[in-house]
């Protein structure tokens, strides 16, 4: 790499001839970078693209030939989507599961955002003893595998809390669509450590003088939080919101345990897993099903991606 030193050094010299040369080189460089980055991006997309093509191919074609043969011998069908969307028998109404997914996801995103931003603010800007240890403890909770939390949490819902024979909290006794509440609760619990970690990173890096000034003006913590911090971290909230949305929308395990499997409460993932799973390697259903489930997160992601980048930008301002 040392050989590169004089050339770039030359580029910095302000003489006319070398400037043109460096400009040409720079354009060349950026062109190479463009080509390379696009090639990588395309390679990165090939597996998804293959699945996408496959999802429109007839069953026997999927099972016997590669998806790339579709270019030389195009055979396409909507049959796979027909099967996945309208299915067979009693539980064909995918739309019903779609609504369940929405009803599960929206509150499961809002609650942790609100709670975690409050907590992150307190951990970053309110002086109290042991706050660093508390933050570290919450951070460390990220490692608790949610699988191990399933049974105790389910017990919490179905039998309540009893300490030394005294019923402290009653059982929830929810039925049908009321079970959404359990799923919201569970998702909120599981999301909090990461949310606090992420938001704390942003909030703690907000300029301290801003807070000082507000304190001097006599603003209370709730007011500072509402009027100064919240507007500043909106992009960060959006960033976490996307993460949480993707996670909840794609979740299978939590929904399986806390929502039960009927069409009253089970989300799309549960239904698609059933569709794909009951007949083994039914690639045609798997491919179409995978795409149906990807569509919504993709739309959400693409439409919010602006916020996402900005959100992460905000956090690293002070580097």
């Amino acid at each position: 790499m040392t050989t590169a030193t004089p050339t770039v050094g030359a580029g910095a010299q302000a003489t006319g001839a070398t400037t043109t040369a460096s400009r040409v080189r720079k354009r060349l460089n950026s062109r190479t970078a463009t080509v390379v980055s696009i090639v990588i991006a395309v390679l990165w997309t090939v597996p998804t693209f293959g699945l996408f093509i496959s999802s429109f191919r007839p069953e026997d074609q999927i099972k016997t030939t590669g998806w790339w043969t579709a270019f030389t011998d195009p055979q396409f069908t909507l049959e796979n989507y027909q099967q996945v969307l309208f299915g067979s028998g009693s539980s064909g109404r995918l739309i019903s599961y779609f609504i369940n997914s929405l009803a599960i996801t929206i509150p499961s995103v809002l609650f942790p955002i609100a709670f975690a931003s409050l907590a992150a603010y307190a951990l970053a800007w309110i002086n109290f003893r042991g706050r660093d240890w508390l933050y570290i403890a919450i951070f460390a909770l990220q490692i608790v595998p949610l699988q191990m939390a399933l049974v105790p949490l389910l017990k919490f819902f179905s039998t309540g809390v009893t300490i030394a024979g005294v019923q402290v909290l009653p059982a929830w006794n929810l039925v049908d669509e009321q079970k959404f509440a359990q799923v919201w609760f569970a998702h909120t619990c599981f999301a909090l450590p990461f949310a606090v970690f992420l938001l704390h990173n942003f909030i703690s890096q907000l300029p301290g003088d801003l807070m000082e000034a507000a304190r001097v003006d006599g603003a209370s913590h709730p007011r500072i939080f509402r009027t100064i911090v919240l507007p500043l971290i909106t992009p960060a909230l959006a960033a976490f919101g996307i993460f949480q949305f993707l996670w909840v929308w794609n979740d299978l395990l939590v929904a399986l345990i806390f929502a039960d499997g009927g069409d009253e409460t089970a989300p799309l993932t549960v239904r698609l897993a059933e569709l794909a799973g009951s007949r083994g390697n039914e690639w045609q259903r798997l491919t179409a099903g995978a795409f149906v489930s990807i569509v919504v997160p993709l739309i959400v992601f693409l439409s919010l991606q602006r916020y996402f980048v900005r959100g992460l930008l905000a956090g690293s301002v002070k580097g």
């Binding site: 105790p152 389910l154 017990k155 399986l256 345990i257 009927g262 059933e274 799973g277």
Partner: peptide
């Protein structure tokens, strides 16, 4: 009769029973 079938039956049954559900 409310029947629910699951591919994860063997594992999930244990979770539900232990969880009081």
């Amino acid at each position: 009769i409310d029947h629910e079938g699951s591919a994860e039956f063997e594992a999930q049954l244990g979770v539900r029973v232990d969880g009081g559900n």
